[in-house]
Design a protein around this nucleic acid. Structure first.
Lengths: 103, 103
DNA sequence: ACAATAGGCAAGTGGCGACTTGCCTATCAA
DNA sequence: TTGATAGGCAAGTCGCCACTTGCCTATTGT
């Protein structure tokens, strides 16, 4: 398990929003994008009309859920997808043993 | 795929609520429970204070998401867990091929 | 230094979702 | 038939969440 134990609550809430899932799709397709890159790609490719701050807040939610890792470099902040939290949340109901109810 | 194609949107939204995840835990532990059984178990075992209608509405959300299947028998309505929708939603980011963005 | 770029912070707004309340229908036992 | 049990329907309340708006800091190029 990771050092900062991310609650399953945060992961599920992060995945609840369709825009955040789009962002994960974008990062799955191309890792290491900046905020502005993600922003323009969401608008052009997916036709979503949202501001830069909206995407920034979505990224903050994804980061606190452990689904996105960030690395600063100068004035740029690159975002990487981290699928590790995804592998634990669903197996909770798929395998019949240990109903330990994490959240 | 199921006949009534359940949107991934519904599955994610259904999983966003902690009470609904508790209900899935309950059904994973014992299938075929009625509304009142689930209600009393949530109150006694998990200490949740919620009304019968609240649980009923949660079950409706889970059912429309395809995560819970129901069968009527007289005045009873039994609820069964269906993990089938869970197996598709996460693999969307786990495997790198086909970023077809279902929702 | 100055402007442009990349990003952050914080208050405010609107809408949706969780929950309650009240009443209604249906099935079963006496 | 009467009462009890199991569940459904609909309106209303309240809080949270997504999004905007405005302003601020930091880094880079000229």
């Amino acid at each position: 398990m990771p050092i900062v134990s991310v609650m399953a609550e945060d992961v599920f809430k992060a995945l609840a929003d369709p825009t955040r899932r789009r962002i994960l799709d974008e990062l799955a397709e191309r890792d290491g994008q900046t905020l502005f890159e993600i922003c323009t790609r969401l608008v052009t490719k997916h036709g979503l009309g949202l501001s830069r701050q909206a995407v920034s807040q979505h990224l903050a939610v994804l980061e606190s859920a452990g689904l996105v890792l960030t690395r600063r470099q100068g004035r740029y902040k690159f975002h990487d997808l981290n699928t590790e939290p995804l592998e634990h949340i669903v197996t909770r109901w798929l395998k019949p043993d240990r109903p330990e109810s994490t959240s």
